[in-house]
Amino acid sequence: MKRIYLFAVIIVSLFILSFPDITLAASSIPIPGVDVKLGTSNNPADVSVTLQIIVLLTLLSIAPSILLLMTCFTRIVIVLSFVRTALSTQQAPPTQVLIGLALFLTFFVMSPTFSAVNSQALQPYLKKQITQEQAVDRAVVPFKQFMAKQTREKDLNLFLDYIKAPKPKTVNDIPLTALVPAYAISEMKTALQMGFFIFIPFLVIDMVVSSVLMGMGMMMLPPVMVSLPFKILLFVLVDGWYLVVKSLLLSFG
């Protein structure tokens, strides 16, 4: 094996040396370089732009987490995970499929919010009608309206009381530092409630199958192995995915 590898290396080397034009052409291609300079500047605008770039790169690194907590993704992915667990199918559907379905459902539910952000903040900013700070302030408003609609007042008051903030008069007055975690725990509570109702029919099937096996004296046969086909059959007959997705969409209405 080593002889074959050495022979291949020799052949490739001879092939490259037999065509010097290739190496010359490759050496004549300019290689781009990056020059980063650290020093003083007489223009304050240069320092401001540099700090803005650093802040922007920092926000981009945590943007996915922030975006997921400010959308309906949390509720959807938890409910879909409950469906898979209740069916006892382990890795079917695969996690990638559930995450992909949750993302597309998130885009579908959040499309009015994204459209509002695009029309009120992004497009005016691209047309240079507003500044960057004004664009950020306008972009936050649709997200606040969506999150406030799905957030329980009890959860919101928990964080407002902790930071000793005055009671907001409008949705726009709610600080994001209190609204985002309040919205997150409200979404998880709602998802767990929906998951509980999803579990009930499958739990009944497990209990019935377990009782039948116990009555027949089949102690060594796992009840899950017998109840799994009945769970899948029930889920298919009632068109389970349609009902789950419909319930998710109606819960955001």
Results as ranks from 00 to 15, higher is better:
Thr50Pro: 00
Gln52His: 03
Gln52Asp: 07
Val55Ile: 13
Val55Lys: 09
Leu60Gln: 01
Ser61Arg: 10
Ala63Lys: 01
Ser65Tyr: 04
Ile66Ala: 01
Leu68Ile: 14
Leu68Lys: 12
Thr74Leu: 04
Val77Asp: 02
Val77Ala: 04
Ile78Tyr: 03
Ile78Met: 10
Val79Gly: 05
Ser81Arg: 01
Ser81Ile: 00
Phe82Trp: 07
Phe82His: 12
Val83Leu: 14
Val83Tyr: 10
Leu87Val: 09
Leu87Ala: 10
Thr89Arg: 00
Thr89Trp: 02
Thr95Val: 13
Ile99Asn: 02
Gly100Phe: 12
Leu101Ser: 03
Leu103Asp: 06
Phe104Pro: 07
Leu105Arg: 08
Phe114Val: 13
Phe114Met: 09
Ser115Arg: 10
Ala116Pro: 14
Asn118His: 14
Leu122Gln: 12
Tyr125Lys: 00
Leu126His: 08
Lys128Ser: 07
Gln129Arg: 10
Gln129Ile: 14
Gln129Leu: 15
Ile130Trp: 01
Ile130Tyr: 01
Thr131Phe: 05
Val136Met: 13
Val136Tyr: 15
Ala139Ser: 15
Ala139Leu: 12
Val140Pro: 04
Lys144Pro: 04
Lys144Ile: 02
Gln145Phe: 07
Lys154Tyr: 03
Leu156Lys: 02
Asn157Gly: 06
Asn157Lys: 15
Leu158His: 07
Phe159Gln: 09
Leu160Arg: 05
Asp161Leu: 09
Asp161Pro: 02
Pro166Glu: 05
Pro168Met: 00
Val171Lys: 14
Asp173Trp: 04
Leu176Asn: 09
Leu176Phe: 10
Leu176Glu: 12
Thr177Gln: 06
Leu179Pro: 15
Pro181Leu: 11
Tyr183Arg: 13
Tyr183Phe: 15
Ile185Glu: 09
Ser186Cys: 08
Glu187Asn: 14
Met188Asn: 00
Lys189Glu: 08
Lys189Gln: 09
Ala191Val: 07
Leu192Gln: 01
Met194Ile: 12
Met194Trp: 03
